[in-house]
Amino acid sequence: MEYNNHLLSNAFNGKTAVVTGAGQGIGFEICRRLAREGATVLLNDIDADLAEHAAGKISRLGRCVACPGDSSDLGFIKRLVERAVVETGSLDIAIANAGITLFGNFLDYKPESFFKVMEVNLGGTFFLAQEAAKQFIKQRTGGSLLFMSSATGHQAHKQLAAYGMSKAALEMLAKHLVVELSPFGINVNTVAPGATLTERTAADNEYEATWARLTPLGRPGTPEDVAAAACFLVSDGAKHITGQTLIVDGGWTVVSPSP
């Protein structure tokens, strides 16, 4: 879905944002919306070709720089924040969107799968927040952090014990950082999407019909739905909102029917 120019503001003019895991899906849509509303966006993805292609598409609408690399690697995270400062002189927004889902039954879930989920979903988010916060504090300008949780961090789902656990932990991290970072004018929030139609989920021919039936509002979410919530929480209009989680799931967690 394309945004009409007359519906867009310049809410992010002069802002610099880093978004991880943004080569497609929700992350891509967040980057596109930020760029179209005036931000300079550093778009990260572990797939270099995907990052370059995505940034190229967004660059037709606003300023977007491809930053391929592993967002769970501390050295890369440091370089990503440094590049944001090199590109524009400052950093204002950091969105930890990168994450992986490794399904598996609890009783035979492999250690390597468990630790990979934690490394990417928790480690990548924790240390991006840490590096970005250090830059915000150095600038003395405040800033906004946003984490990407999931409805499965609120309601149990088959074969997603490790994933759901990691997403719930991100919401608690945001709460703890209220204590640590509020004195510096930094707000930190979380978005928790429910079933969302992306390139990955579209590969399942039954996905849309199944979640349209299970979702009270009658359809699964779209990347645009989640991006709208994410961009609000990192906007100046949300500066007095911190430590909160906004669930974007069409009401699924209220009733929680199992697929």
Rank of each mutant, 00 (worst) to 15 (best):
G62E: 06
G62H: 08
P259H: 05
K15I: 02
A96Q: 01
I77S: 07
V248Y: 01
F28Q: 08
A212V: 00
A228M: 00
R79E: 02
C231T: 15
F103R: 13
F106P: 08
G25C: 14
T201I: 11
V81M: 00
F114T: 12
P223S: 08
A227N: 11
P111M: 14
T253E: 00
P111A: 10
I77C: 07
L91C: 04
Q244I: 03
A98Q: 06
I241Q: 07
G251H: 06
A203L: 14
G99M: 07
T222E: 04
K78L: 00
F147I: 04
V41C: 00
A151Q: 06
S144D: 04
S71N: 10
T210A: 08
Y207F: 13
S149Y: 11
K167C: 01
A129H: 15
I100Q: 05
A48M: 12
N105T: 12
G75C: 11
D204M: 00
L34R: 13
L107E: 14
P220Q: 12
R36P: 02
K175T: 02
N189A: 10
R36Y: 03
R60V: 13
P259R: 10
Q155G: 09
T20P: 01
Q139S: 03
Q159T: 00
L197Y: 13
A202W: 12
V191W: 11
G75R: 15
R36V: 06
D73A: 02
Q139L: 02
G21Y: 03
L50K: 10
L43Y: 09
R79I: 09
A238P: 05
F12R: 12
P223F: 06
G123A: 07
R36L: 10
K134D: 08
V117T: 01
V188Q: 11
S182V: 14
F184E: 10
T210V: 12
T16F: 02
G27A: 08
A203W: 10
S59N: 15
A17E: 01
E37K: 11
A129G: 13
G124N: 02
T222I: 03
L246G: 10
F127P: 01
E37V: 13
I100R: 02
A229S: 11
F103P: 08
G27W: 03
Y207H: 06
A238V: 13
G21M: 04
I77D: 07
T40E: 05
A238I: 09
E37F: 13
D236C: 09
H176G: 15
R60H: 12
R33F: 11
T242N: 01
I137V: 14
G25S: 15
T190F: 00
T210I: 10
V234K: 06
D108F: 03
